[in-house]
């Protein structure tokens, strides 16, 4: 860990004023502190944002919810409006980490979790994400947990969050504030694929701060299911996760949302595919077609071909569970 300055502003403007080239915002610190101990993150200044007034969950004019960036993961998962209207999000949050971590972790910070790729975490070895241009040992090494979709020559890491998979399916937007003012980023545009710049996880500009996450008016409060498959029953990152949401019209799919975790550098979603299956019968035969279509572009590595089969099965299972599910609470 390197020496660093520390400040704790009390408003967003103050936080933005302190931000500079080697500064880092910190909220729960559940990921950043680990990265600092391993010399993966080396901020010169930590700007502790836990004193900012970003802890409210409020109704929006459009019938949705605005979630302050500092609302804790545990608190959010148990929020009555989330439980009632966005159960997919509640399920996804509770599938992540451990109770202790969820108590500490913030909503904004959850979006900024960095990959769990072992090479990224070990500053003694090459990694294009940590040290651009040094190479990607995962491509030819241990890649059982790595990407099957959307990877590049430079990086095969996957995004670790569960919450983000649900937010992608629910078409959230991310409210940010920066030196140039405020803007909104559609969730699909927030995280990015590695491409030529694997060191960039997302599209935040320098020194931009997430202030809130906005959910649109609820459309999927009933037929939803978050399925996470991992190497142990808790406190493990997803091998594959599926956020499935259905609006049923009789025995047909009225509307479909489907996002995958553990497969790519960002939560993986295909809106065109979702639209294509609108009006199809809500049957396992359809779900099998959806799974095949969703994974048709999969390019597994030497040790993760099982993820294609697993994702396929998990999609069918999650959609089936979502269909059978009645009522909002888990």
């Amino acid at each position: 860990m390197i020496p660093f300055a520390y400040s704790k502003p009390t408003d967003v403007a103050g936080a933005l004023q302190l931000a500079g080239p080697d500064s880092h915002f910190i909220a729960g610190g559940t990921n950043l502190l680990d990265l600092m101990k391993e010399n993966v993150a080396q901020p010169q200044r930590l700007i502790d944002i836990t004193g900012l007034p970003l802890r409210e969950v409020t109704a929006t004019a459009s019938g949705g919810l605005s979630i302050g960036a500092l609302v804790g993961n545990a608190e959010l998962a148990r929020h009555p409006r989330i439980e009632a209207d966005y159960p997919l999000l509640a399920q996804a949050i509770l599938a992540g980490a451990s109770p202790q971590l969820r108590n500490m972790a913030s909503s904004g910070g959850n979006l900024l979790q960095r990959t769990r790729c072992a090479y990224f975490y070990d500053s003694a070895v090459p990694c294009n994400k940590r040290a651009p241009g040094t190479g990607c040992p995962a491509r030819s090494g241990l890649n059982r947990n790595h990407a099957i979709l959307g990877a590049s020559q430079h990086c095969v890491a996957v995004h670790p969050s569960d919450m983000c998979v649900a937010l992608a399916a629910l078409e959230a937007t991310v409210q940010v504030q920066g030196p140039a003012g405020s803007r909104q980023i559609a969730f699909a545009d927030f995280h990015r694929l590695p491409g030529e710049q694997p060191e960039r996880d997302n599209t935040l500009a320098d020194n931009e701060l997430i202030t809130a996450i906005e959910l649109p008016a609820p459309r999927f409060a009933e037929h939803v299911h978050y399925l996470k498959v991992r190497d142990r029953a808790s406190y493990a990152f997803a091998l594959i996760s599926v956020a499935a949401a259905l609006r049923l019209e009789g025995e047909r799919i009225g509307e479909l949302r489907l996002a995958l975790g553990g497969v790519a550098h960002k939560p993986w979603r295909d809106p065109a595919l979702e639209a294509r299956f609108q009006g199809q019968p809500a049957t396992s035969a359809t779900y099998t077609q959806i799974a095949q279509a969703m994974l048709s572009g999969a390019q597994p590595l030497a040790h993760n071909a099982f993820k294609v089969t697993l994702a396929h099965n998990a999609i069918i299972r999650a959609l089936g569970q979502a269909q059978r599910r009645q009522g909002a609470t888990a």
């Binding site: 769990r116 072992a118 090479y119 975490y121 070990d122 003694a124 070895v125 040992p137 030819s140 090494g141 241990l142 406190y235």
Partner: peptide, 14 residues
């Protein structure tokens, strides 16, 4: 990782 000759999951999360 036998290319690197190194144990990579050296923490209790992984």
């Amino acid at each position: 990782d036998h290319n690197l000759g190194r144990t990579m999951n050296h923490n209790l999360a992984e």
